[in-house]
Design a protein around this nucleic acid. Sequence first.
DNA 1: TCTCAGGATTGAACCGTTTTAATCTTGTGC
DNA 2: GCACAAGATTAAAACGGTTCAATCCTGAGA
Lengths: 346, 346
Amino acid sequence: MPASIRDVASHAGVSLGTVSNAINRPEVLAPGTLRRVQKSIDELGFIPNASARKLRAGRTRVVGLMVPDISNPFFTDLAKGVSEAALAGGYVVILCNTDESAEKEQQYLDVLTAQNVEGILVTPARDSIRALARVAEKGIRLVLVDRTSQGLAACSVAFNDLYGGALAIDHLYENGHRKVILLTGSENIPQVAERNRGLREAMNKFPTHDQVELSEIRIDSMTTFASYEAVKLRLESSFDFTGIICGNDLIALGAIRALREKNISIPGDVSVVGYDDIDFAKNAWVPLTSISQPAFELGYAAAELIISECESPERHVHQKIEFQPRLIVRESTGPVALKASKLMIS
Amino acid sequence: MPASIRDVASHAGVSLGTVSNAINRPEVLAPGTLRRVQKSIDELGFIPNASARKLRAGRTRVVGLMVPDISNPFFTDLAKGVSEAALAGGYVVILCNTDESAEKEQQYLDVLTAQNVEGILVTPARDSIRALARVAEKGIRLVLVDRTSQGLAACSVAFNDLYGGALAIDHLYENGHRKVILLTGSENIPQVAERNRGLREAMNKFPTHDQVELSEIRIDSMTTFASYEAVKLRLESSFDFTGIICGNDLIALGAIRALREKNISIPGDVSVVGYDDIDFAKNAWVPLTSISQPAFELGYAAAELIISECESPERHVHQKIEFQPRLIVRESTGPVALKASKLMIS
DNA sequence: TCTCAGGATTGAACCGTTTTAATCTTGTGC
DNA sequence: GCACAAGATTAAAACGGTTCAATCCTGAGA
């Protein structure tokens, strides 16, 4: 039903090859011919069939994006960045939400190769390196997002999680906090592990006579609600800390809620640091101090990387782009207060 | 580089057509042959090339999803529902974030037709009906999401916004609120207009001697921050209301923040009703009473609809699926209090 | 043993592009 | 007026599948 290149050719009174040239290499055509063909294209509303195009030229101009959880605003922003960069480059992105399931990830990998995507932007779950390697063998280019390329010949864009972890603890340390709780996610998630490592390494730099006492609560699902429950439970035993460092902002929001229910003031009694700096953090009841990771930019950069690799593979060389996280100080943190010290005695 | 159907054929010692049959109509093959071909397929890791497939058979198994703002958790959930249903049906979804820009919408529409998607799930911006009609002519099936099909021959899934609006005002009315503020988005957005209409129609049913006094504040961008600013400004003039109805939850969160900064208690002094029941609403500092719209289910239903249309177009008949919103009462609303009445006098 | 029906398999055309080699025009210099 | 180069255009092959008409088997019935 839609107009084909043949329709355009006969409408313009030229051969089919000429129309193709008009589209892909306009400079080889005589100006008059080009104009005539253009006119026919417009009149017929011709849009080249991408499947046929791909079949012949091996180019689909489609990339896949695989994220573990699109409901997390961090990944939402990332996706926005990716699709904006893609659109600008004439590409299109297939969204794959893996729900952190290795099975879904494999399923999507198959679908994406069947669709002949030119590249995949992926935040890999635990250990899908092998599956990814198999995909790479098929000639599909990879960019690892928010994760560095472990032995995989691929580009990567990531944040310096080591540094981010340090940023959080340093901030609390400078404000006098010496008893801190770490609300972390599972260390199976590489980013989480890295941040925690960075945090501990930073602690080693504090003078031995003035150390921070750190205790850890693991929150497996990294959601607001799970965090709320965990902190509520923790507060029932004893309240002996002045700072909380959270694995992400959702966790921080849950913690804040639990604290306020107990009438614990923020930052009067307890300072809270989040991670990701999602939009909701900024507008939370107590605006949240957080580690900002510009997800949109990360996504944009990742998409640009893969597009440039697709456009000129010969002169492409794999690269690692690292973004530095930044500490955004808002009202949820402050200097440790006398009042808090008193509370700690109880 | 990847194995083609020919490779499989020679590997299995059969003709190319037989391999195709093994994939698409296994029942016509002799069991032994089928097994042999299957084995070759597995060994070579053959995945049929979707482009070639489409070219001949006219099927891409790709659908597009166009949403105005993927950062809004409502649309995020929707997208999740869509892609889950798609995956289950062997389809794949291309995500298009239009940022409410008609230009981007057109751009994406072109890309999607070039990609030969079989269908598009779209939440149309203002008046893109004409552009959509043009797409439909090309044989691309449409499902309107969260919007009914105005004269367009297409399926639609939507919420009963009229009812949702009524739900909100009725709830406040029953709790004794008679002075209410409506924090609405632009009425150019059809859903917003519908909700407001439903709200007003419900008000007409109240006895004439006991009416609600409604004043309206328009918040153009429907974000938390915009709402926060608007409400803060409003509170500076006079505080003479006991209830607030919000165009969505983001707006409600902003309003709550502004109220609390003024030490206005919720729901003691003012009750707040949101719309959408996003996840953050439930875990907000004051858990938010909201109108629940199961976005995930909506997306899932929409995707199923379009897939079934694609699979058997002949016996398909366009349908309208309407979901009923539900009122979820949480702590942000309550009966109007004496204290509040007193305040109103000032 | 021969015929024939029916299922299993094959071969070739075709989908809508890109691309390359071949052909057709022009215009220039002698 | 002719040969030839350069530029413009075209024809045909190829991409990797699907599909359908044609062919090949096999076994049953005569």
